[in-house]
Computed example of a mutant assay.
Amino acid sequence: MKIVIVGAGQAAASMAARLRAKGHDDEIVVIGAEPAAPYQRPPLSKAYLLGQMGLDRLTLRAAGWWADQGIALRLGEKATAIDPIGRRVTTDRGRVGYDVLALTTGARSRRLPAAMGGDLPGVHVIRTLADVDALAPDMRPGRRLIVIGGGYIGLEAAAVARKLDLGVTVIEAAPRILGRVAAAETADMIRALHRSHGVTILEGVGISRIGGTDRATGVALTDGRDLPADLIVAGIGVLPDTALAGTAGLALDNGIATDTLGRTSDPAIWAAGDCASFPWQGGRLRLESVGNAIDMAEAVADNIMGANRPYHPKPWFWSDQFDAKLQIAGLGMGHDRIVTRPGDGQHGGSVWYFQDNRLIAVDALNDARAYMIGKRLIESGRSPDPKTIATASDLKALLA
């Protein structure tokens, strides 16, 4: 049984390794459009951009691992079409047949429209190694950076830029930063952290255009202000990369639609990671995280091998900003109550999300203990009384 994996990121690396660990001894081919071997994405906007981590530490597997495992790694090769009837993948180098195909195509950065100046030199996104390699030379002390978007990627870029001694302004069109992904209480902690490091945060105002002709020189805001800039980072989210799946006629629904096993509408094609959505609580869910990329890819590998094991996500996330670490367990969507606990330091504490008195998520800033206890409670299905969480002198007692 020849297995072809299209997309060469975290999910692909995890799936290939799992297939070999589960005893698949036939061909495995991994096709990736980027020239680099599968690498970690989270450090790109942090340690790698700061110059604290090289490509050798970024890669997920040592150079010889792929050959040792007998996995054909075809890099710098772009898949352009899938023929589900003939079971072939067409690439810019030829055709590759398969018995089973897995799509781990990930996600791509949203970009500002060219009509707004989004394609001007000096306007950057952060998603791939090439993106960050293009951005790094522009990140010089004393320069003025405008970050468009107050989500995690934008805020992480802002923190790195301040560490490199750039002047930084973050512009968020929504009423507050982290509006789609975190409670107002978490946003308040992150906002205070950034302002304490000299970041200017403008909320509730958008951009009408990017100024400049040969290069971006600033932004015009929707309230009439003009802000000068030497470079711009657009951190306005990502879109699941569904182009191949769509042209092949696979069902799409907030990504490549899979069943509980990770199988798409074509029984010979599977999907995992940022590109895939799966059934969850009566609807569909798509997660953009390292944890989901690993866990779903391993579940799909098991199911390709016949395990018939439904995928049940255990969401966890993190974000490093300045010297602070935000750790998140669970999903706070649909919460109807928030409980907060102070942390030990100036910038720290935890935010606990409840729905119908059921603990569903925890955000912990510089509070690893709260994160670990909250994660264990959520994964075990236990929900302490919200008042107890707010007043407990020792969170560990909640596990008793």
Results as ranks from 00 to 15, higher is better:
Ala183Thr: 03
Pro141Asn: 07
Ala159Thr: 01
Glu172Gln: 09
Val199Ser: 07
Pro386Val: 06
Leu50Cys: 13
Lys78Val: 09
Ile71Met: 05
Ser383Ala: 07
Cys275Gln: 04
Gly198Ala: 13
Ile201Val: 13
Val96Gly: 05
Arg286His: 07
Ala63Arg: 15
Arg376Gln: 11
Arg143His: 12
Pro384Phe: 02
Thr91Ala: 08
Asp336Ala: 07
Gly291Asn: 14
Asp394Trp: 12
Asp92Met: 00
Val160Pro: 04
Gly334Phe: 01
Leu202Thr: 08
Ala276His: 02
Pro121Trp: 08
Ala36His: 13
Leu55Ile: 11
Arg225Phe: 02
Gly154Asp: 06
Arg376Ala: 04
Ala324Asp: 06
Asp323Tyr: 08
Arg18Asn: 08
Arg180Gly: 08
Gln321Ser: 10
Trp352Leu: 06
Ala114Tyr: 12
Arg110Asp: 14
Cys275Arg: 01
Ile3Trp: 01
Leu231Arg: 05
Leu221Ala: 07
Gly282Ser: 10
Gly149Trp: 00
Ala67Leu: 09
His124Gly: 10
Leu75Thr: 10
Lys396His: 13
Leu166Ser: 08
Thr340Trp: 00
Leu395Ser: 04
Arg358Val: 10
Ala157Phe: 00
Gln346Arg: 15
Ala161Glu: 01
Met305Gln: 15
Pro141Trp: 02
Gly262Ala: 02
Thr104Phe: 03
Gly218Gln: 01
Gly343Ser: 10
Ile190Val: 14
Ser319Pro: 12
Met15Ala: 14
Tyr48Glu: 05
Leu60Asn: 07
Met305Lys: 12
Gly291Lys: 15
Ile360Pro: 08
Ser109Leu: 02
Arg369Thr: 04
Gly7Met: 01
Gln10Ala: 15
Leu135His: 06
Ala257Phe: 01
Ala297Gly: 13
Leu202Gln: 12
Ala130Gly: 14
Ala8Trp: 00
Ile71Asp: 04
Gly70Lys: 13
Cys275His: 09
Pro175Asp: 15
Cys275Val: 13
Gly86Leu: 09
Ile294Val: 12
Ser265Gln: 01
Ala324Ile: 03
Met116Tyr: 05
Ala397Lys: 15
Leu239Tyr: 08
Ile338Met: 00
Val199Pro: 00
Gly349Lys: 05
Leu120Lys: 04
Ala216Ile: 03
Asp188Met: 11
Val351Cys: 03
Gly306Phe: 07
Ile207Asp: 04
Ala173Phe: 12
Gly273Cys: 02
His335Met: 14
Leu44Thr: 07
Asp119Cys: 13
Thr200Ile: 14
Ala361Glu: 10
Thr242Lys: 00
Asn303Gly: 11
Lys22Val: 11
Ala136Pro: 09
Tyr98Val: 08
Asp344Trp: 11
Asn303His: 05
Asp223Pro: 01
Ala297Arg: 04
Pro313Ser: 06
Leu285Asp: 01
Arg41Val: 06
Ala271His: 04
Ala36Glu: 08
Ala36Tyr: 15
Asp188Tyr: 09
Ile3Gln: 05
Val123Pro: 02
Ala243Arg: 14
Arg41Pro: 06
Pro228Leu: 15
Asp25Leu: 14
Thr222Trp: 05
Trp280Val: 11
Arg18Leu: 10
